[in-house]
Design a protein around this nucleic acid. Sequence first.
DNA 1: GTTTTAATGCTATATATCATAACATACAAG
DNA 2: CTTGTATGTTATGATATATAGCATTAAAAC
Lengths: 154, 154
Amino acid sequence: MALKLKSPAPAPVESAGPSNPLEQLLGYQLRRASQAMMADLGTELADLDLKVTEMSVLMVIEENQDITQSEIGRVLAIQRANMVPLTTQLERRGLLRKGVTTGRAQALRLTPAGRALMRECRKRVARHEARFLAGIGKTQREALLRHLRMVWEG
Amino acid sequence: MALKLKSPAPAPVESAGPSNPLEQLLGYQLRRASQAMMADLGTELADLDLKVTEMSVLMVIEENQDITQSEIGRVLAIQRANMVPLTTQLERRGLLRKGVTTGRAQALRLTPAGRALMRECRKRVARHEARFLAGIGKTQREALLRHLRMVWEG
DNA sequence: GTTTTAATGCTATATATCATAACATACAAG
DNA sequence: CTTGTATGTTATGATATATAGCATTAAAAC
């Protein structure tokens, strides 16, 4: 089943390493860039025992008092079912509280501890963002963000 | 005032829709854009019974005859251990063959069936990319790709 | 007023992705 | 010969994500 190769020996001119045909694809570049930033932010928040998704949820709640789980899910593209362990975990840690509005909907809002944690998070996120935007001019940043939004909003 | 993201058509007085404080973050935009393109490409390749990662591996092999698993992993940022089920699966489907070079390394190359499948894949990928790059000028595409590479290559 | 519809929270489950540790083998360098 | 390094491999765990179904609640339809 194994095929044999005639020349086992020395790399003739191949000192340039393997080429990557995916490099010119937007989808590939997006994936790599996203993975890099997600990993970096993850380590940045590690000692706070906060995952990126958890922080995102808290940020949306802080900006939208009394929002419901389902609404957060729609905003962040998180399945309704997957919101449940997120909010229960954050409530157990005393970072948010669940109130009742209408129907089964629960009005979520941050506790003082949650808001304090968010202050620290915002600082770290700002540092994190600045790190990756370092080599990009200010005017080009707007174009970059605009184009990215066009990609996923269609 | 918060920035809005919803449809501008109706003017509901009480509900302006929740605001998303993450929208101005590069990391968030990258994640959403990457998710959107990954999902789209996934459905595009679904009837070929090919996952995006599998197609990526095949593309790298086609462009780099006799590359090894570990090298592919380094190029695509896939763990060595996670390459194993990928290549064994693709070999079982007759899309690639494993040869032997030096040491334990296996020289991978596509079979004719693999190359034929790649021809179809390239067409679909081209359509897929064009779909998402539709609203972006040609000169700005280069800037976009360049900036994305800066993000993850540091 | 009763029935129907829709939306929310929730559970359970499956799958997919990704990371880590350990091991055996093969080759190179000391 | 010993040591070191790299590869393929297995096993395992953690995480993320998706799907289906259920109960409850409110509003809409009749």
